[in-house]
Nucleic acid binder design. Structure first.
Lengths: 348, 348
DNA sequence: TAAATATATGGAAGCGGTTCCAAATAAGCC
DNA sequence: GGCTTATTTGGAACCGCTTCCATATATTTA
């Protein structure tokens, strides 16, 4: 029982109390095998007596590693982002690494972070979420001196960066194909703006898949069946109401995210359209509420994408990766209760 | 134009190239006034030539400060949490501090973090969001050797910790009083479980306010008008449907969060009740979607609470605080379109 | 012009760890 | 017992910065 010292104890205090050398204490801390049992327990006793905890900063400097991983992420208010972050935090919690987070809400900050964060002095690795690099960013990122993993982000000319992605073209195709196989011919697509300052690409790729499926089935694309706006449930609701007020309105809607699909369901309800009888709706993501709503959707592994990205990063620290990984996570069509066959229109 | 060096440049490289001493470079980096203009520009030239960035870890060790702030937060999927986090990140982005985040999803982790994170060697300050300490935590936190700010968290016996809180009792009272003044007598309350392992207190305090308002108006509390369950829109929907199926059902509902209020609105719609004519609904928080929905609610300053917490933390680093601050942020009743007077029942 | 004062500069010491090398001790072998 | 080898141990050197003190240079002042 002694007074709490003003300054935290250092490794030297422990060495003195345990009557051993500095190196020995360090070896005990780091579980080095070459310390005799007797010495080890003497040191442990001193450690707990002094309430000693190794100073992480000193450790980092000495190791030449920051033991820190940065996540650069846009608006972390969207469920798809927070789910990925949960996965990241979850995997990192068991490791020795700290997670530092940078939230991007402006293009200027995006550029600043992409330039300044991936430096060896700052962090050991970087995770970039849902922010696809633009042409100028590619060389910067490929030249960075720390491992980087892009999650839900990509660029055609990337070859030297790890990525965890979903094949959004395929996902869009599968969703649309599902509707086509149910007999739908007039299929709407509701999405974010395909072109945007942050270079979010998912809506764009899913749109490509949508187009592919249509043309594969010989259905011409009609631009009035594509609604784009800012991301959000209520924006989607507004868009789809306009679309559904047309004469020749769609019998099915593919929404680029579940959040937007919820908006579509609301709109249908407001317009007195029964889902799925009058309107089939399919979303994308399979966020938590999708199951509650019985929403048919394309599941992507959000939480797992974060976990996987961390695994890849940690592996790349240990040089285990011969070359950059581009891991494509599977998507899965989850058929629930918001899609059904277009009665009377089946042509198969 | 020279080859990218394998190792990042150090302050010594800069000193050598600029032909000055170590100390001088350090002074330039830290904007010390006592460096001559000529020397300063020589050093700057060398810095940009070597693409030099000071090593933060070394800086931290030397300064004896980690330049890092931890945020300990429960499930960061809830809008009220992510809004606060946004505010925190936003304020910290302009500072020199890094933000490291710990997500709490189990009680065990909560306890572990509360014990281990607030240490001088790890971080310079700690923000704890929406996790009220329990009795055993109080002495641990009060003895911690780094400044701590609780946000949306409190404990009756706390005196030595900074807090940014909302008077939830008052907020609950105001919400309920609003309904009473509209003539409602049968007022339901939908909330999280009042007792829960994480010791979330907001539902409890708002419940107190609800009770106060009722008894102030001479309305007896009826336990069948209080529904509690896990947090969430759909859980709330289920609860309120049961409540509304009773004979003597409430004419107004106070939901402990906007998320839950949305569930109430859904339930009303499913049951064919018009809002506000058949059922008045008031929420709490004023999250982004509340305005879209025209939801009457009690606004609390979520984003600002995060900003304010950071300000207090930074001030306490500079010893500017004579004693711990307990800042109560205002709430504001935002009357929109989901509450109206109980026609035919007005007794005033 | 010399002395006193103000301004600039160089670099050692120190922050608290890790690691490597040399030395001490223990164990094994003939 | 004496020699070799394996196991433990101590501590200097180092990681890259800041800071303080001593020294060098410039500026005032009498």
């Amino acid at each position: 029982m002694e007074a709490v010292p003003n300054k935290p104890a250092t490794i030297r205090d422990v060495a003195r109390l345990a009557e051993v050398g500095l190196g020995t204490v360090s070896r005990v801390i780091n579980d080095s095998p070459q310390v005799s049992k007797a010495t080890r327990s003497r040191v442990h006793k001193a450690i707990s007596e002094l309430n000693y905890v190794p100073n992480p900063t000193a450790r980092r400097l000495s190791l030449g590693r920051t033991m820190t991983i940065a996540a650069i992420t846009p608006f972390f208010t969207r469920p798809s982002i927070t789910e990925r972050l949960r996965g990241i935090e979850n995997s990192l919690a068991e490791s020795e690494y700290d997670l530092i987070i940078f939230n991007v809400e402006t293009v200027a900050r995006r550029d600043e972070l992409i330039r300044e964060v991936p430096r060896r002095e700052r962090v050991d690795g970087v995770l970039i979420l849902s922010l696809s690099p633009c042409d100028e960013d590619v060389p910067i990122l490929e030249k960075a001196d720390v491992p980087i993993v892009l999650v839900d982000a990509n660029h055609p000319s990337l070859t030297r960066l790890n990525r965890v992605i979903v094949d959004d073209v395929e996902g869009g195709r599968v969703a649309t194909q599902h509707l086509i196989e149910l007999g739908h011919r007039r299929i709407g697509y509701i999405s974010d703006f395909l072109d945007n300052a942050f270079n979010f690409t998912s809506s764009r790729y899913r749109f490509q898949g949508y187009r592919q499926a249509l043309s594969g089935a010989g259905i011409p694309f009609r631009s009035e069946y594509h609604g784009q706006s800012e991301h959000g449930r209520y924006e989607a609701e507004r868009l789809v109401k306009m679309m559904l007020n047309n004469e020749d309105r769609p019998t099915a809607i593919f929404a680029a995210s579940d959040t937007q699909a919820i908006g579509v369901l609301e709109a249908a309800r407001d317009l007195g359209l029964r889902v799925p009888d009058d309107l089939s709706v399919i979303g994308y993501d399979d966020i938590e509420v999708a199951e509650y709503l019985g929403l048919t959707t394309v599941r992507q592994l959000l939480f797992e994408s974060g976990q996987r990205a961390v695994e890849i990063l940690l592996e790349s620290f240990e040089q285990k990766l011969a070359e950059p990984l581009c891991e494509v996570l599977p998507t899965e069509l989850i058929i629930r209760k918001t899609t059904t066959s277009r009665s009377g229109y089946l042509e198969f």
